[in-house]
Design a protein around this nucleic acid. Structure first.
Length: 258
DNA sequence: GGGATTTGACCCAT
DNA sequence: ATGGGTCAAATCCC
């Protein structure tokens, strides 16, 4: 065992509890008034918390959640680290660190370059939306391995998808109580303005590249310039919902994406 | 044969 | 001058 195993187990148990509550809510959507979004967030945060204990131990990095006496419910309910940022040209940025490259993030990408980066021993790969030319979609992403053993791949999403919806079969019975059921691997088609990385990461970060002085720590989520970050919980809750391709989720009001 | 990937060259910002 | 990002010809693969 390792230091923090109790906290990791507690986080997983908390996540399991939230997942069970979420299951109940989804099984009785008509009778339950409990919002699903906080439950999704709690489940995700629980995984992130648990993973942080594992990764912090294996990498001998300073502990991300060093206060082991902190109430876990408070811990998982803390403010999400996922935030939106802007580059100088106004494009949105989102950075995601994952133990594996995010190849299947719900979008179709075309690799257009690969380059050795001075500050890294690994090459950086450049991708753009597969529909960049067809539909003038300017979304791009970069993938680079930033750490060995355990391997960590950093995926940076830049810009927003403009690619248009093709076909999404939606039987009328899927619409209940004003909600719409959407399939996540078609979410980009319903809401082309979104960027949807797969949330399997051990850490989520963002960049403030137009400030030049931003400082982040991969494992510690150490935000020196935190006050510079745009805080938009609602935006990120919708921009990066907890999903995997093929899963479904109810959205109370899809028009809020506009 | 057509689409996807690779890779050296080129462009541009610093 | 240098490094990062993109282009586009060459190559690969189905």
């Amino acid at each position: 065992m390792f230091p923090g195993v109790d906290e990791a187990v507690q986080a997983l148990l908390h996540g399991q509890e939230s997942a069970n509550r979420l299951k109940s809510v989804l099984e009785h959507p008509r009778t339950s008034s409990v919002p699903t979004e906080p439950l999704f967030d709690t489940v995700l945060e629980s995984f992130s918390t648990a993973l942080s204990f594992f990764t912090n131990f294996t990498s001998c990095e300073p502990r991300q959640y060093h206060d082991s006496s902190q109430n876990m419910a408070t811990l998982v309910a803390r403010k999400s680290p996922k935030k939106k940022s802007y580059t100088k040209d106004g494009l949105t940025h989102y950075r995601d660190d994952s133990p594996t490259p995010l190849h299947h993030d719900g979008f179709s990408w075309r690799k257009y370059g690969q380059k050795k980066i001075k500050t890294s021993t690994h090459q950086r790969c450049y991708f753009r939306c597969a529909y960049a030319k067809d539909q003038n979609c300017n979304a791009t992403k970069r993938v680079q391995q930033i750490q060995d053993s355990p391997s960590v791949y950093r995926t940076t999403y830049i810009g927003k998808h403009k690619c248009q919806v093709t076909v999404f079969s939606q039987p009328s019975e899927d619409i209940t109580d004003g909600s719409k059921m959407i399939q996540f691997d078609r979410l980009d088609q319903l809401m082309p303005d979104l960027v949807l990385p797969q949330l399997v990461s051990v850490d989520h970060q963002e960049t403030i590249e137009n400030e030049g002085t931003y400082h982040t720590n991969t494992m510690n989520q150490d935000y020196v310039n935190d006050e510079l970050l745009v805080d938009d919980e609602k935006f990120w809750a919708y921009q990066f919902p907890p999903f995997s391709p093929g899963n479904f989720m109810f959205l109370d009001n899809i028009s809020t994406f506009d």
